[in-house]
Design a protein around this nucleic acid. Sequence first.
DNA 1: CTGTTAGCGCCTTCAC
DNA 2: GTGAAGGCGCTAACAG
Lengths: 345, 345
Amino acid sequence: MNPNKVTIHDIAKILNIDSSTVSRALNNSPRVTEKTKKKIIAKANELGYQRNDLASNLRKSKTNTLGVIVPRISRHFFSSAIAGIEEAAFKMGYNVVICQSLEQLEREKSNIKTLLANRVDGVLASISMETENYDHFEGLRKRKIPFVFFDRHCNIPNTSSVLLDDFQAGFDATEHLIFQGYKSIAHFSGPKHLEIYKNRFEGYKAALKKHHIDFIEELIFYSRLMEQDGIDNINKLLSLPIKVDGIFSANDVAAISAMKQLKKKGLRIPIDIGVVGFSNEAISAVIEPSLTTINQPGFEIGTRATELLVSQIMVGNDSFIHEKIIIQGSLIERESSQKIKETIE
Amino acid sequence: MNPNKVTIHDIAKILNIDSSTVSRALNNSPRVTEKTKKKIIAKANELGYQRNDLASNLRKSKTNTLGVIVPRISRHFFSSAIAGIEEAAFKMGYNVVICQSLEQLEREKSNIKTLLANRVDGVLASISMETENYDHFEGLRKRKIPFVFFDRHCNIPNTSSVLLDDFQAGFDATEHLIFQGYKSIAHFSGPKHLEIYKNRFEGYKAALKKHHIDFIEELIFYSRLMEQDGIDNINKLLSLPIKVDGIFSANDVAAISAMKQLKKKGLRIPIDIGVVGFSNEAISAVIEPSLTTINQPGFEIGTRATELLVSQIMVGNDSFIHEKIIIQGSLIERESSQKIKETIE
DNA sequence: CTGTTAGCGCCTTCAC
DNA sequence: GTGAAGGCGCTAACAG
């Protein structure tokens, strides 16, 4: 017999007991004798029984599953956030289903539908670049499915989120460049309407202000988080009449392709770049020494978001409190940074 | 009413028809009048009806879901493979559930159990470092659930897999170093029993042989794919009486931490490293110019593996053919590689 | 402690 | 083209 087809009824029949007893035994209910329990478990193993979670979940109308929506799984920040989510979820007895929006609103909506159809108990989401309207999340709320935003949050009231202190990160990265002696600092931002980029931008401006450096509109470059943007940005930047000596890039994609483009032009590190977004130790180990990054702790953000979500699932339908957890990033400076600078100067 | 609780029966009752008709309409069965179909769909939307896939899947005993097991989602190769898997699965109407083994055999076993309990239609797997015994996969076979290995495959008979041409990759990377003029080439390998590392190692040996370079046992360093290993390896290597001038690292983790360690010691690029495993354009753009990598096309491997798996699911239970698809990697040499070498010499 | 009964929400014969 | 009936596999209330 195909062991996948073994049901509690099969076990019950063989053992001449009722299927409900088998069910109880397999769920380790205290209301079954140790003896029969052992007998049942032994037979179950023998037959290769495997509970059908579809049936179980349907009956219980609870899946012990969390849905996760990220723009793109292969971006390092998100894959490490997912690692944190999985770890925390696993510890608390939850499974995780992961969806990618691929930065498309339509896909994000359909992700939510899929998660709804699969009756997940809660949702963790980092919104797509295109998302400016949040009705699809309101749909979750109507269905009383708790959800928590992480990193890319949005400003709708009564939602929970776990995020980096983006203002502070932008401030720190910019001030770091200022401390290095740079005076004319450009800024590579992300899609204008995303809160995280707004806030990093504000941090940038605040740092300039503190150090009495004029804010220059021309030094701001937006991007759609694509490689080409970094290249274009550098090209535009180099064609400016203003001499730029530092860049604070608020997104890693543009930063990387920007560095690439600089290298291609034979411009080796006349420009220092502060970035928010990297945290891969591996990358930071081999990356251009001039590149300083603010650690954006994906794993921790994932963990915290999951814990928050699960706590909301537990307290149930209505009465949980919406929380906003803000995590501090930390400046990671390349060890050899100073040396390289000396070499060049 | 909580819209999550809306069932086909609710719709049926309101419209004074039978739930089976509603079911048919919602599944776009041709055996329902267009008129009633429209009526039903309109009402469903109005109520915010969302099919309960648990119930549907239970009834159909088919989930349209693929299970994926990878060692660690945050490793770039795997996250890009998953991106490929998702893309292909999505196109063919499948959902994807992702599990991490975290390189632990026990976790891998429990992943399979979870996937089994969720009645996935097929499984894609890249085995953990600890996996030397494959009984848990035999369990899948007994249940007639098709599975396909990708990248980290194993040698059990009658299994399908999609992999890099690891022998060729090892050969190419090593020969590349030889062409650069290196004569004493060390090799950083991975866990001994993993096929991919065996094969890359064989490629290394073959390249040495072709160019009449003696194989030296002392120049082989194994690793558990951890950062510390790369550091240890470099330290050991530097303490050898033999002067090494090139390294072929078959895994990226060790390669990266090795470079880091070299840098720390102030040894800037006396050693060139060929690596199998990188493919992140972003990384390769900014990485040490001396580092040449064999592109290990995660996305493509993921796509191909998924297509193969789905084709096996479609032909059904027994009669599908086991295939082994071997994908060629390609050498990616840093543009500026030559310049840097000149600078140093 | 164990059995009986009922039903989670859906799909699919089988009738008409 | 639509309705009636039954069951996918499991659990939970209620009996005993």
